[in-house]
Amino acid sequence: MSEALIMTGRAIRISRRNVDALITAMALPVMLLLVFVYFFGGAIKTDTESYVMYVVPGVLLLCAGFGSSNTAIAVTEDLKGGIIDRFRSLDISGTQILTGHVIASVARNLIATTLVLALAFAIGFRPSATPAGWLAATAVLLAFILALSWLSAAVGLLAKSPEAAGGFTFFVSFLPYPSSAFVQTSDMPTWLQPFAENQPVTRVIDSLRGLLLNQPVGWTPWVALAWCAAILAASAGVSGALFRKRTA
């Protein structure tokens, strides 16, 4: 346990100094929020009073995508050098090393999320969530970030180079588009609707939107949490095996 803490301190120090990646991970979601609200917002019809009320959860998820994909790059950087061997020769397990990266990723994401939320307030986002609603929304978002960070760590173990790991960014930042993030799924082509309505990103976004706007959400947050738990369990499990394979 204390090893995982030391690994976390390390990963946080490293990401703090990786200024370029940090600025990108913070600035991109902020820019996207502005772009969606002011450029596209007027042309997209939603059942909320204003587009900013609709789009914030989607931007939070995009932000989570960018933030956690840096985990993949950090993991490949580790594998490229000899430091993993040194850690292993100090009897530090793969799980501990990866946990450090994942927690650093969650920390980065929370900062970016706060930034986006603050800006959203400034431009008219007025959530009406109950305290329990806020708590539940935070839990769902945290679970999503955690799951995505572990998935990203697994991708980092699969990728042969940091450049290849960077490709993961593209994939995760694409997933929110065919979802309820920016456009209501009922306005999408019929062949796309089944996917758009049922993919995990939509579940997470619908939960966040419902909880933050204090609308009835039914079972959706539980479905979202189940998705996150499944992604997390699969990624963490696969990571363990991949780590042993890559470092044997």
Binding site: R10, R13, I14, R17, N18, G81, G82, I83, D85, R86, R88, S89, L90, D91
Partner: peptide, 20 residues
């Protein structure tokens, strides 16, 4: 475990963090 505690390894690639 005991072997790992008793040894150190310095490999061909620097096993330190460049950004620390």
């Amino acid at each position: 475990r005991e072997v790992r505690r008793a040894i150190s390894l310095t490999g061909q690639f620097a096993a330190v963090d460049e950004t620390q």
